[in-house]
Write a protein that binds this DNA or RNA. Structure first.
Lengths: 343, 343
DNA sequence: GTTAGCAGTCACGTCGATTGAGTGCTAACA
DNA sequence: TGTTAGCACTCAATCGACGTGACTGCTAAC
């Protein structure tokens, strides 16, 4: 266990390195912060901290750099989320109100704000499955040969597609069919509509084969859509401003990873457990970003996981700031969802 | 006017520079291409070409680099679009079929393919206004206090939003209202629904103030949406592979420009005239990309401008290749739109 | 008109010296 | 026993000198 002085020195080193990205040396530390200690003493302490695995030296004559273990300790025990300034809050509120028209815009804004506030890459994963349930379906007339199949969900959304109507089929037949299917599926969670259930519908309402097939297909498509996760990203450009990404190869490498939506989904999805998760450097099992840290938070609404937001950046990251921004966004989203649930 | 030998030399210089990104010298040119001329002769010709403004020297002892004027001449007179190889065609077809579910996916795919094939940044601007017309509107029940207002367009799409229903209003009243409005707006181009027209609707169907207001708002929103242009981009990462973008500052600069959707829209929108447009270097009036070239093509369907696609890259660009890819995509999109017009 | 030869220019890479920030160690001090 | 001053040492980064190679322009001969 570290004594208070070691903790203090370690904290200062971590914070200094986070803000400057330069290895920190004993003399500079003594000069910059009023520790009441000589560089020599600090050197001794640093030497101890290195032995304990908290510090590393890029080379003999450079200062020291925090190890992943140091960041871990820093995050767990040495720092608190900084309270956001009023200014920051105002900024966030402003950005959110700038453009908010549908749920996608909200997530996109979240990603944008997250990256702007933290100067890092942000990722927002939105589960389409918000527990939305099938309410009823209805055919709207289009022309002689086509109708529009509308599926209404309990949150007031309508999904629709054009279906071909067999010649000679009367509107009443369509209405009857829609009614039957509606009764069977009403109240079912869209993400959970199983093939078994559809089979049941089938045996119950088999009428016109072709029409029925396209009807089933529409329901399946909708169901799939509700299981899907959308990915929103922001701040990939910010990356270039970070001193650790002055190297083109590294930039290309990480941008390549972020380009694959599937990879991002997997990456962020790891944190299925609740609340906040901080992954530092090699703690991350994804190769290619093991020199990065990631902070992620899942957010829920009425018990459902609505999505996950994450910030990815160099291990030298303003953990406190990122966490507090996430926290604020979390609450903000919560109020938005709760009030605007009918969009 | 240049004689044939000068033209040939200029063409070789441009092409060599396009493929190597290195200033080309007389001796190398003689060695690489079988011109039947000595380096000295080529030097003389190059000297003439420089005087005429077609070539530039980065510094005394470097080779020559084509000037914007040279690219312009090259594009106008020295090159033909290369025919795509069967391989390329197969690749494009494959990418298109990979994922095509709605119109946005198609545009996104177009951007992706364009950037992959040309190794440059691609932008696709999609006009939402495809001449879609209002067909009719209808209320679908949701719960006691709300209904879903559906607006059906002649291409079979349904737009919807939840509206609050005044207490005590009967479904028949809603239907009546929907019917009246439908009759007034039927057949109108959604992008052109004017305030005057809405005013007319107002005087005709004013019934319940609150309901009417939200109804109008929905129509306006939809109309706005149809006037809008969406921007799809691809290949921003490719940028980093280009030798001219090894400089971080330049990368940051151009990525900054591309980040602003508004700017991209303006940038690409310049080419309102039909067909193909090649803008080389300083011909572009946008500051910040005056060392880049842009090739853009507008595409139409039944006379309507459906959108614009553009490739942005260093002036050292494979003009012929880009143009031929665009051409192929153009035809491809045309067939997709014509066949899948009902999605 | 074409070419060989030659002098001149200039970016680029290498090498060595200098600089400066940093460490570890030791001896003295409180 | 903990703290500090001093000193020798290390090593990345910077700078300048220098050689190299890829060019060009010019001139004279073919």
């Amino acid at each position: 266990m570290l004594n208070d002085r070691k903790k203090k020195i370690l904290r200062l080193i971590v914070e200094d390195y986070i803000s400057t990205a330069e290895p920190v040396g004993s003399r500079n530390l003594a000069r910059k912060y009023d520790l009441g200690l000589s560089p020599a003493t600090i050197r001794n302490e640093m030497s101890d901290l290195e032995l304990l695995g908290y510090l590393e030296q890029p080379h003999t004559s450079a200062g020291r750099v925090p190890s992943p273990q140091a960041y871990r300790f820093y995050v767990d025990s040495l720092t608190e989320p900084d309270a956001l300034t009023d200014n920051d809050r105002a900024l966030i509120n402003g950005w959110f109100n700038e453009r908010r028209r549908n749920i996608d815009d909200i997530f996109q804004s979240t990603a944008k704000i997250l990256s702007r506030m933290t100067q890092n890459v942000s990722m927002v994963l939105a589960n389409e499955d918000l527990g939305t349930c099938f309410k009823y379906m209805k055919f709207l007339p289009l022309d002689e040969a086509h109708s529009i199949l509308c599926i209404v969900t309990d949150d007031g959304n309508v999904d629709n597609c054009v279906v071909e109507i067999p010649v000679g089929m009367r509107p009443e037949e369509l209405d009857y069919m829609a009614g039957r299917v509606s009764r069977l599926l009403a109240g079912k969670n869209l993400a959970n509509i199983s093939e078994d259930l559809l089979e049941e519908v089938h045996t119950d309402v088999a009428h016109d084969k072709l029409l029925f097939a396209s009807l089933m297909q529409s329901i399946r498509k909708l169901s799939r859509k509700h299981k899907e996760q959308k990915v929103f990203m922001g701040g990939t450009k910010q990356l270039l401003n970070q001193p650790e990404f002055q190297d083109m190869e590294r930039v290309k490498n990480i941008l390549g990873i972020l380009e694959e939506e599937r990879v991002v989904r997997d990456l962020v999805n790891v944190g299925e457990d609740d609340g906040l998760k901080v992954t530092i450097g090699t703690e991350n099992t994804f190769t290619g970003i093991q020199d990065c840290s990631m902070i992620q938070a899942t957010y829920r609404l009425n018990g459902h996981i609505v999505g996950t937001m994450a910030v990815l950046g160099p291990t030298r990251m303003e953990y406190g700031k990122v966490i507090s921004v996430m926290d604020y966004l979390h609450h903000y989203l919560k109020t938005i969802f709760e009030n605007d649930i009918d969009k």
